[in-house]
């Protein structure tokens, strides 16, 4: 569904991604793990076209999306839950969700809104509250809900567990699995390698902008080097 072939990305003179190739198949949960600064978020944002890849090719559903402007890429059936959640703090919960469904009809919006609120009862309780007044966990739920509002075929999640309490992290990972069961393909970037690999079908390890290892979630969990570097021995 998502194919990344030999992608290089630069920030000015600094090269952040080196010849990255990976693939996410339809219906999979694929995770990308790596240390701080390895280029995980850069890869995520490069898929979204911000920044654009300097070379290489990104295909979504067989269609090249590298080179398209960000707004156009994000209308192809792809949605992102970005690093740091980035909910619109001064908009209400409902307005945030509405923004996610910007290009859909009112009926479609209302249908998906109901689905999202069933999945996140907390958001229903706070529907008219400003997003900025909510807790981190609630904001993360809102960010996921907003991404779901466009009915994407694939969701990119960038560190959804960052800074959250363990119990909330559990919930978030359950919801990610639920999304996959509902037919949404998931590409998950995580520092929380243990949790991420447990739910992932396959995983990739990124080091200094290069993919150094890949395999099934279970294989990577057992891998000696991965255990040492990311799972605390």
């Amino acid at each position: 569904m998502l194919q990344i072939n030999n992608v290089n990305t630069h920030y000015g003179p600094i090269q952040a991604l080196h010849d990255v190739s990976l693939e996410v198949k339809k219906g999979e949960i694929v995770t990308l793990i790596g240390a701080n600064g390895a280029g995980k978020t850069t890869l995520m944002m490069t898929i979204c076209g911000d920044p654009q890849a300097t070379s290489g090719e990104i295909l979504f559903d067989g269609k090249p999306i590298s080179g398209m402007p960000t707004a156009q890429i994000m209308r192809q059936g792809l949605a992102i839950v970005p690093e740091g959640r980035r909910v619109f703090a001064r908009l209400t919960v409902q307005e945030n969700l509405h923004m996610g469904a910007y290009f859909r009809t009112k009926a479609e919006y209302e249908e998906t809104l109901e689905e999202v609120l069933l999945l996140f009862p907390r958001l229903r309780e706070r529907i008219n509250q400003r997003a900025g007044t909510m807790s981190g966990g609630e904001q993360q739920m809102l960010a996921i809900g907003r991404a779901m509002m466009s009915k994407p075929r694939m969701i990119l999640l960038d560190e959804p567990s960052l800074g959250l309490a363990p119990i909330i992290i559990q919930q978030i990972f359950q919801i990610i699995q639920k999304l996959r069961d509902d037919g949404v393909t998931i590409f998950l970037v995580e520092q929380n390698a243990n949790q991420a690999l447990k739910i992932a079908d396959r995983g990739y390890v990124l080091e200094n902008g290069r993919v150094v290892l890949s395999g099934s979630g279970a294989d990577l969990l057992d891998d000696e080097n991965v255990r040492k570097a990311y799972l605390g021995g």
Binding site: C48, D50, A71, M74, R86, M99
Partner: peptide, 8 residues
Amino acid sequence: GMTNLLGI
């Protein structure tokens, strides 16, 4: 940037 990431 986020508004852009929603396809707008």
